[in-house]
Amino acid sequence: MNFFARRRLRNTLLCLVGMVLAYGLWRMLKIALRPAAIYTGFALLALVLALALFNGRKKLPFLPLMKASSWLQFHIYAGWLSVFVFLLHSGFRLPTGMLETILSVLFVIVALSGVAGLFITRLLPPAITRSGEPLVYERIPRYQHALRTEVEGIVEDAERQSGSTAMGNFYMSTLAPYFQRRSSVLLLAGNPSRHSQRILGQMDEYCRYLDEELVGSMGRLRECVERKRNLDFQNAAQRLLKLWLFVHIPFTYSLIIVALVHAWVALVYGGRL
């Protein structure tokens, strides 16, 4: 078993043990007629605060506070545990009342975005690596501009040399929209190569009507289509790798604020403050 498999197994077991313990305590509190919701509520709040500390740790990399990867492991498995404690806290029932509903919705968004983030960060990097030439995300608009200019140059050269407008027409109708478009993350929803495959198919089709020289230019354009495919994929994938955090982190802060209000309300109206 390799390092990652061993670590996954160990942490999963620890997490399951945590869940069993939490369930046992919850049952005991229930049997003893103690206010289980208060205890589970505080446990949940503590867990969420501990989970949120991960982002704080990221801001202090120069302090010897354990490696960020260890924090991430804690974040992932404590995250699963917090989902379980949330279920215990809610008594496995749907929320009632405005505050509880908002709080539950926020929790679900944070948890789901976290799970989505986990899958995204595990699945996309290998796909990016295998996609082709490595690209720096911030420079993608520049690469795209350079590629477009290159394509226009090839088309202009071909037109000039052949004296025909065949390439220009094809460029205007088919290639220009493709090369001008910046991909969105929705590209990842289906087959990320579908656009490029369609364009390549149309190029093959169009080659029937061209002479040998223009077919040569088409060959160069095919390489550009391949580069655009890589560019689109990397743009979408790298953007998604950043975007999910824009959901996860702000909603976490909102969750903490609403949770604190909820705790205060529960304590005050429960006559404990």
């Binding site: 990221k58 990399p61 120069f62 960020a68 990097p125 990016i128 790298q238 790798l241």
Partner: peptide, 18 residues
């Protein structure tokens, strides 16, 4: 390891902050 690297640049930021 590019199969694990999410291109988040936390490493670069970590280096900068140090």
């Amino acid at each position: 390891d590019l199969d694990r690297c999410t291109r988040c640049d936390d490493c670069v930021r970590g280096c900068a902050s140090a």
